[in-house]
Design a protein around this nucleic acid. Sequence first.
DNA 1: GAGACTTCATGCCTGCACAGATTGGCGTCA
DNA 2: TGACGCCAATCTGTGCAGGCATGAAGTCTC
Lengths: 241, 241
Amino acid sequence: MPTSLHQQAVDHLGSRIIDGSVLPGEVVLASELEDELGFSRSVIREAVRVLASAGLVVSTKRVGIKVQPAEHWNPFDPLVIRWRLASEGQGAQLRSLTELRVAVEPMAAELAAEHAPAEFCAELLNLAARMRHAGREGDLDSFLELDIRFHALVLAASGNEMFANLAHPIGETLRGRTELGLMPEHPHEEALAWHQGVADAISAHDPKRARESMELIMRRTVQEIYEVWAHKPRLFPRPVR
Amino acid sequence: MPTSLHQQAVDHLGSRIIDGSVLPGEVVLASELEDELGFSRSVIREAVRVLASAGLVVSTKRVGIKVQPAEHWNPFDPLVIRWRLASEGQGAQLRSLTELRVAVEPMAAELAAEHAPAEFCAELLNLAARMRHAGREGDLDSFLELDIRFHALVLAASGNEMFANLAHPIGETLRGRTELGLMPEHPHEEALAWHQGVADAISAHDPKRARESMELIMRRTVQEIYEVWAHKPRLFPRPVR
DNA sequence: GAGACTTCATGCCTGCACAGATTGGCGTCA
DNA sequence: TGACGCCAATCTGTGCAGGCATGAAGTCTC
């Protein structure tokens, strides 16, 4: 309950920026935030420094704390992802993350088939079996948690720390997807077989088959979730040099 | 020249953690850092907050500032990437980023072919032509900068902000690769043709061909750089739940 | 229009009170 | 005697209040 004042300050300003309550280009003063939240200068300053490191604001002398345009925000920052998933930008965030999954997870499966240690293989086989069981029982809560663990484990088994680090936001997208009611009543029998196929192929050190099975899962995932963002406009910021 | 004290403090502790001068599990005290750098408490505290947000440290009462194990570091944080590229972990960082490129860039090319606005297509064609010219002249410096802009533009043209945000670290990867002497004397004629092929396919809204051309580029990239990390061990942290 | 001056918000410093986690001592009980 | 549990001292980050220094913007003068 008593989350630290620092966290509160970061969350207050960060979520307001990302949900559009404070627009890019606007300037807020540290003293305003002090009054608004009733916190002291040090708390506000530390929070601003953290938000600046995520690209949300820049603070300059004589002018104040200026909100940066969205293309400066670090879309891989866990806080930014969480705030976006809780705001109007949820659709665009789900699209970005899902496209990233489609690109990364087949590659992760391929690498896992080449490099995964034995205990990862055993755990993957175990999870696949339990997913099959939970899926056939119609136990969707268990299925979701197992699904999250399965994909996180494949990412970790790739031996690529950037892939492994995507497990958290990807888990949140899976949870978000069920909250939006975008999961089928019963997991498809095919999906269960594909997960089993990924686990089998990785255990058998068969990179090609591991990739192909994961690609099938990803294709189905996109089909199921596509409507959420179908109407969301894409943004094309010019790259900075 | 006078980089802020805050930046200095962040960089001091951050780079020391990532190059292994301070090992995970070690605790440092804020007062030690104050004495070591000669900065005041406020500067140190703000720096620690920023490093904590990147997952490098946690600070708890009565114990101090504890360095976190590497699997807690956010590998997508720009600071973390820069420090890793400048340290012993360079090989592993190049591997991670290159594997990420291999996964993401073909997908980005495919999406760009579906969604890229006209001015992005024009700029891509322009860059491809200039790359061809610089490559045939043997002007490697120009070629490198054009190459970086080309790949950044494809990522931006995908309309996926997470992809677009990878342009910076990927650009640093390309620069690092030339610094390590891993680029051919003259860019291969094939590579020039493939870049042209990507630009053509995106302009022609041909996702399949855009992806395939980019895959060819990526395959060659891996071949050229593979030796850097061939002997580096992979890390397999157990995913946290 | 170029340069000097004023203004004002952040940058940086310091002293103080508080909170919470660790440690060690103390007493109790087996 | 030794193990356990409780409690207080201690240590360190957290948060507060106020001060001076700095430098970017804007203004005024020539």
